[in-house]
Simulated scan of single mutants.
Amino acid sequence: MRSILYDLYYGEISPAEQYQSTKEEYLRRSQERIARYKSFTKSLQPYQLKMFNQIIDDQYDLLPMEHADFFVQGFRLGAKMIMEIYNEEKPSAEE
């Protein structure tokens, strides 16, 4: 079994690609969003639909960057927590 660090280095670990929510609320809200999207887009003229889809595509293009930043910030926070645990002064017997 290879280590997690090697898997991360060689690109074998990709949390964003492997993630799929199983939470009922997420699934319910996702289905509601899809239904609203379909209903809304049916009401648009072809040129409006094209413009709207471009806006949605632009937004989706930004998501990976946002998720990467969230991941890095979370990872750094976790590392800081570990450092704090290891650097914590041991209580003396007098306390």
Rank of each mutant, 00 (worst) to 15 (best):
residue 46 P to T: 04
residue 7 D to T: 14
residue 30 S to I: 04
residue 8 L to Q: 13
residue 49 L to W: 00
residue 86 Y to W: 11
residue 12 E to L: 13
residue 89 E to K: 09
residue 88 E to C: 01
residue 47 Y to N: 09
residue 86 Y to F: 08
residue 44 L to H: 01
residue 22 T to M: 08
residue 29 R to L: 13
residue 6 Y to M: 14
residue 72 V to N: 15
residue 26 Y to C: 03
residue 54 Q to Y: 02
residue 47 Y to C: 00
residue 71 F to A: 15
residue 80 K to I: 01
residue 79 A to C: 10
residue 30 S to T: 15
residue 34 I to R: 12
residue 66 E to W: 08
residue 9 Y to F: 10
residue 85 I to T: 04
residue 83 M to Y: 08
residue 13 I to N: 12
residue 26 Y to D: 15
residue 41 T to E: 13
residue 95 E to A: 03
residue 17 E to G: 11
residue 33 R to C: 06
residue 53 N to G: 00
residue 91 P to V: 01
residue 74 G to F: 08
residue 53 N to H: 08
residue 92 S to W: 01
residue 22 T to P: 02
residue 22 T to A: 07
residue 13 I to Y: 03
residue 24 E to S: 12
residue 27 L to N: 13
residue 10 Y to T: 15
residue 8 L to Y: 06
residue 58 D to Q: 04
residue 44 L to I: 03
residue 16 A to G: 09
residue 31 Q to I: 05
residue 88 E to L: 01
residue 61 D to Q: 07
residue 81 M to I: 09
residue 66 E to H: 06
residue 91 P to C: 04
residue 18 Q to Y: 09
residue 48 Q to D: 04
residue 47 Y to F: 05
residue 45 Q to M: 11
residue 76 R to D: 12
residue 41 T to S: 07
residue 50 K to P: 00
residue 41 T to P: 00
residue 56 I to Q: 11
residue 65 M to P: 03
residue 91 P to K: 07
residue 42 K to S: 08
residue 42 K to E: 15
residue 57 D to P: 01
residue 82 I to Y: 15
residue 1 M to W: 10
residue 43 S to H: 03
residue 77 L to G: 01
residue 68 A to D: 08
residue 35 A to T: 08
residue 30 S to F: 10
residue 72 V to R: 15
residue 33 R to D: 12
residue 65 M to T: 10
residue 68 A to E: 05
residue 10 Y to E: 14
residue 67 H to P: 00
residue 62 L to Y: 06
residue 54 Q to V: 02
residue 58 D to V: 03
residue 76 R to I: 06
residue 24 E to K: 12
residue 22 T to Q: 09
residue 51 M to D: 12
residue 45 Q to D: 12
residue 65 M to H: 02
residue 50 K to F: 06
residue 72 V to C: 07
residue 82 I to G: 01
